[in-house]
Design a protein around this nucleic acid. Structure first.
Length: 602
RNA sequence: GGCACUGUAGCUCAACUGGAUAGAGCAUCGCACUACGGAUGCGAAGGUUUGGGGUUCGACUCCCUACAGUGUCACCA
């Protein structure tokens, strides 16, 4: 935005020269405090004068008054001011707001940065294990990671969305063993199950058999903790892992087959979620890099070897513990693989500036350790790795918990959301008379918006409570309610167009006066670029969600008690039409960054 | 037990990073509307920001302390 439309630059400079001329001193950046004027006071922008009283050596009111007089005299955009306690409230002229708005409607990508104008950022999210289906926790993870990536893209970064697939290790061997023993050659086709569900089923089967065998051993007088490691089925899984590492052709073939099923299943789930990836990393490939890095670190003395052959790092000097990075049998661990992957990624993308890991907060310690290790290995880009940590999602007691455990399956939940959307829509008589196929699509869109909006509107780092019923309400702070407002603005815009009202500029010349509502909406739109920039800086999509909701409400507040297309002269009609169009453009852009689709009708 | 995060209206969440009288939505109550114990609109009520100290012009925000919740402290991932 040009400087004459940027209030911070405009007022910042003016205040600087005001203080210079009144009191003969230069101000630092931190002494100029500007904020949006609160609703209950008159004005647009507020200068906090407390930091200036030390310089003026006068009371806050006096100081504010003096600066206010100076500003009004020297800045043509300022139409008035008032001082309340230590707050100087400044009103900007209609001319300023109209000029801004004319600028905003000519920018089709208002607020969005120039594509690829900023350094590359990598966002990792999802990163599932391949032995079981995606669950509720993955939903928050995926939506958060996807949204952050889209936000960064919107402000101009090159973005690579990636995930690391944990396709290797004892967990997948468990599913394989169980399938061999109990599967009778069952496939996704023969059982008409999603592939990930099928493999997950055998993971559970393994667990059952394991428990059964443990019970038998305990009966034979073996201690419980030892029994777990001595079962026949467990040793079969361990054998299989060893065979896998030795690249036994039969084991590898089975591993590929079952992982293939899982990927097919995941693909369906990701499609429903509406997320995607630019590049996939597989642990089965990257763990080698990790072992190499450990090897190098061992030579340079960063790591040390214990008598049994396991390799460690001593982080007690950092206030952490000793940490193993390689098992005594030389096999790689979770962290080994992560060391390799981090370094590999910066090699894969030489222009990579920053890396964001979207991973749950239960792994905060893990990442602290990982970054320390990378740093000790002399990998300076460790400072450019950020753990985007998020809290757990809980559900209201009882409902929607799957039979056995506490795990809520992602596919089931998303399907349930569409069903609830259907119920609510039917109850309220919406969508009547639409073809069945279109209805189905809309139920899906509504259900997903409810889910996404609800999960994203909460500060990521906090644990949260997800209530499906509350999330899908067409009133209140929900995705569907924002969608609903959006659809209404589309209808109004359509009606205006049919009525021959055209979107054009020239508001400044036409001499329109802004009523309160119009001024409110313009001011709200003015905030958009700042909100987006802030969200990109803090990796927090919640800011965007709240903003979109606020804008929708601000817009709505007028719609409810006025017919905005009536009772106005031509210039005002044009302005209102333009406000309608711009409002829904901004809302649509905002929600798109959250991965929420906008229906054309509802 | 050590470390980390969290604690705001009955419930789910905000509060522009130290600013004005702590805001929304559900739920509740009142009014309007009416085929309706519904949907909608308007309005009201709801708070010692877990307790206690401190820092300053000013604290939900920063510091100390107590309490409560969650996570984590594996040759698991």
């Amino acid at each position: 935005m040009e400087n004459s439309l940027n209030t911070h630059i405009l007022l910042g400079n003016a205040i600087r020269s005001a203080v210079k001329s009144l009191y003969g001193e230069d101000l630092t950046e931190s002494q100029i405090q500007l904020q949006k004027t609160r609703k209950e006071f008159e004005g647009d922008i507020t200068v906090v004068v407390f930091p200036l009283v030390k310089i003026s050596k006068k009371g806050p009111e006096q100081t504010g008054e003096a600066i206010g007089v100076y500003l009004k005299e020297h800045v043509s955009e300022i139409s008035g001011f008032n001082v309340v306690k230590g707050f100087l409230n400044i009103s900007l002229s209609e001319n300023f707001w109209l000029r801004f708005f004319e600028y905003a409607i000519t920018e089709q990508n208002f607020g969005i940065g120039t594509a690829n104008s900023k350094p590359r950022v990598m966002v990792e999210y999802s990163s599932p294990n391949t032995n079981k289906p995606l669950h509720l926790g993955h939903l928050r993870n995926n939506f958060l990671g996807y949204s952050v990536a889209e936000i960064l893209k919107a402000v101009g970064h090159k973005v690579s969305k990636v995930q690391i697939i944990n396709d290797r290790g004892i967990h997948i061997c468990k599913s394989m063993v169980a399938w061999q023993k109990f599967g009778n050659g069952e496939t996704p086709e023969s059982s008409s199950m999603k592939g990930d569900k099928l493999v997950g089923k055998y993971y559970v089967e393994f667990d059952k058999e394991q428990k059964r065998q443990i019970a038998v051993l305990i009966q034979q007088g073996i201690a419980e903790d030892k029994a777990a490691a001595q079962t026949e089925i467990m040793s079969e899984a361990q054998d299989m892992l060893r065979e896998w590492e030795a690249k036994d052709p039969e084991v590898i073939a089975l591993w590929k087959k079952m992982n293939g099923w899982v990927y097919d299943g995941f693909a369906v789930t990701y499609k429903t979620m509406g997320v995607d990836f630019d590049k996939l990393y597989y642990e089965s490939e990257t763990y080698i890099n990790g072992k190499d890095e450990v090897e190098n670190g061992l030579k340079s003395g960063v790591f040390f070897k214990k008598d049994d052959g396991s390799v460690w790092i001593d982080l007690t000097g950092e206030g952490l513990d000793e940490k193993a990075v390689l098992r005594k049998d030389g096999t790689a661990m979770y962290i080994t693989q992560d060391i390799g992957t981090a370094i590999l990624r910066f090699k894969d993308f030489p222009d990579l500036e920053y890396q964001i890991y979207t991973v749950g907060n239960e792994q905060e310690y893990h990442f602290k350790v990982l970054l320390k290790i990378l740093k000790k290995l002399g990998f300076d880009q460790a400072d450019k790795c950020y753990h985007l940590s998020y809290g757990m999602v809980e559900l209201p007691e009882g409902k929607m918990k799957s039979r056995e455990g506490t795990v809520v399956d992602a596919d089931d939940l998303m399907e349930e959301m569409a069903t609830v959307a259907e119920e609510v829509a039917k109850e309220q008589g919406k969508l009547e008379g639409l073809p069945e196929e279109e209805k189905k699509h809309l139920y899906h869109i509504i259900g997903m918006s409810a889910l996404k909006y609800f999960l994203l509107r909460v500060d990521p780092k906090k644990n949260m409570m997800f209530d499906p019923k509350e999330s899908i309400d067409f009133n209140g702070n929900t995705g569907p309610s924002v969608q609903y407002t959006y659809v209404r603005t589309v209808a109004i815009a359509r009606k205006a167009e049919e009525g021959g009202i055209k979107l054009n500029s020239g508001f400044v010349e036409s001499g329109v006066h802004l009523n309160k509502w119009e001024a409110d909406v313009i001011r709200k739109i003015y905030e958009w670029p700042e909100v987006l920039a802030e969200a990109a800086r803090t990796y927090n999509p919640a800011d965007i969600a709240h903003y979109c909701y606020d804008l929708a409400r601000t817009y709505n507040s007028f719609y409810h008690d006025n017919n905005i297309l009536r009772e106005a002269d031509v210039a005002s009609l044009n302005l209102r039409f333009a406000l309608t169009v711009k409002s829904f453009e901004v809302i649509k852009t905002g929600l798109k960054l959250l991965g929420i689709e906008m229906p054309e009708r509802l």
